[in-house]
Amino acid sequence: MTNDILIAVIVLGVLGILFAVVLYIVAQKFKVLEDPLIDEVAEVLPGANCGGCGKAGCRAFAEACVKQGNMDGLRCAPGGNAVMAKVAELLGCSVEQGEPQVAVVRCNPSCKGANRRSNYDGLQSCAFQNTLYTGESGCPFGCLGCGDCVEACQFDAIHIDPSTGIPVVDANKCTACGACAKACPRRVIEIRNKGRKERRVFVSCVNKEKGAVARKSCDNACIGCGKCEKVCPVSAISINDNLSYIDFTKCIACRKCVVECPTHAIHDVGFPAPAKKAEAPAEAPQEPIKVNITVGEKVEIPANN
């Protein structure tokens, strides 16, 4: 009896030692030397693995930071200045304070609802629809509305508005990681500075067609007329390929262009409701309501209040 116990103990003990030795040798042989700093940096990152920095994930970003030794060209948008400061502290280098940013959808919400010209009946994927044709609105540059951006967002910050079919960004949740901008096959989404007091002005259109053609695609298309460029006091606006662009680093949010734009393609966000004497508020264009109809179709005339 005691013999049995003894044998069992010895066998198990020997086996244990044997395995321990094998494990030790293997561990030594395949040891990967890694800078412990990488772990520390990865620790302070948000860990969402959104890929907004252009790296495969947060750990890859940390590796890149440590390898480079400084923060030049590396930025974690979701973490913002606070996280970047922490990373810089760990690395012992300095970091530039970035402006807080937000994703902006540069397509006019009135566009798709009014000008639907076809009915898309395939895979719900913008990337695929983009290879087929212009999309339901007929605008070859506009939002396709299948929600590739919604799927790409790790922060639940962008959703399709069911009434317009165009995504809306929740500025409070958006971390400006840029995943949606990358997912959009038409580059409709842009990462822009949030602006002072969260007030920002931007051209809500990316249509590069000539004015008349663009206007046919969408009532609120930028036609590249250049009125905004002329009126801008700080020359923040430039026109390229029939499309106006407001440089957010120069814009002072004076809103002169918003009033000037003949197609209401320039949007302002975050401003208080217009005062009594505001000349032409962008939100409520006082123009006849246009409905695209074809012969033989039943039409409901919208009540004009």
């Binding site: 639907r116 076809s118 898309y120 395939g122 895979l123 087929l132 044709y133 012969v295 179709e297």
Partner: peptide, 9 residues
């Protein structure tokens, strides 16, 4: 006439 349907083949 209805709107034309579009899908891949």
């Amino acid at each position: 006439m209805n709107l034309l349907n579009v899908s891949g083949s």
